[in-house]
């Protein structure tokens, strides 16, 4: 009988993640059902006030903004990432092209945001150019709206969508498509019954890698959203640091958590059911 060393090996990770992840996370969960303290913090009394307050008009507007921005970002990112990943996977220079995708991935996140401020800001390149040649009389505000947030979110998440898509397309056996066509399938049949199902796990990963960071984003709308467009992440920060309403910050965090976990479970399910179906057919 080999002695079970599993417990020993996992002791540090077990302790660390319990103390610094599970306990802090439980604070959010429990805190969202407590009353707010006078100067931040919680009062130990049960209350669902924080969740009730989510129904306010402001919160409804912010939630709709958040959903719109993250869905638009995800759709556009995946649509752009698919042909890009396809091209890389089918190219004889795969490694070199892939490297071109990885460089922005290594570049500091805030610098990538800053690059867009330098291009689109009120004193940015585009405005300067159009003012100088006399098309604009004065700078036009290109940032500080929904579309600026979406543009920059696509910019930051694109490598995360391209890499998993590349991984599945690269493994895909393209002779299967020819075989399907030879056996009489139409072009769209071979596309939707062979290619899409087989690369679906990659598409799901790309969707998750784009949607969850977009939905819970705080930095991008904080920097280029201005005062008009706020997302749930900004409200959490505001409730925590300015309004000092911790239960409210905790309740919104719970909403973000729930949606992220549901998305992951849903997509895992889609992936595994598709895999079973394909396996069954073969």
């Amino acid at each position: 009988m080999i002695k079970n060393y599993g417990q020993r090996y996992t002791f540090p990770i077990m302790v660390w993640l319990t103390v610094f992840f599970v306990i802090p996370f439980s604070i959010i969960l429990v805190g969202s059902f407590l009353e707010k303290g006078l100067y931040g913090g919680f009062e130990p009394a049960f209350s669902i006030e924080a969740y009730k307050a989510l129904m306010s008009d402001t919160m409804r507007k912010v939630t709709l903004n958040t959903i719109f921005i993250s869905v638009a970002t995800t759709v556009l990112t995946v649509l752009l990432a698919l042909p890009t990943a396809y091209h890389i996977a089918r190219s004889p220079y795969k490694e070199k092209l892939l490297f071109l995708v990885i460089i922005p991935f290594w570049t500091n996140f805030l610098i990538r945001i800053f690059a867009w401020i330098a291009v689109l800001g009120n004193n940015g390149l585009v405005n300067n150019f159009f003012v100088n040649i006399g098309i604009f009389n004065s700078p036009v505000q290109l940032l500080y709206n929904k579309w600026a947030i979406i543009l920059i979110m696509i910019y930051t998440s694109l490598p995360f969508a391209i890499l998993p898509l590349y991984a599945v397309i690269e493994k895909f056996d393209f002779s299967l498509l020819e075989a399907a066509r030879d056996l009489g399938a139409t072009k769209s049949q071979s596309m939707f019954k062979i290619l899409i199902p087989l690369i679906l796990p990659g598409i799901s990963t790309a969707v998750l890698f784009t949607f969850i960071p977009a939905f819970g984003n705080f930095a991008i709308p904080d920097i280029v959203g201005g005062t008009d467009v706020r997302m749930l992440g900004n409200i959490i920060n505001e409730r925590l640091k300015t309004a000092r309403n911790w239960p409210s910050a905790a309740a919104i965090s719970m909403i973000l958590t729930t949606i992220s976990v549901v998305m992951v479970l849903l997509f895992n399910r889609i992936i595994s059911s598709k895999e079973r179906k394909i396996g069954g057919n073969i």
């Binding site: 610094f20 802090p24 819970g216 920060n237 905790a250």
Partner: peptide
């Protein structure tokens, strides 16, 4: 890994 970063930040701040 799957939770938005802000959740980790907020929970640790409260902790």
């Amino acid at each position: 890994i799957i939770l938005p970063e802000i959740i980790i930040g907020v929970s640790m701040l409260m902790f």
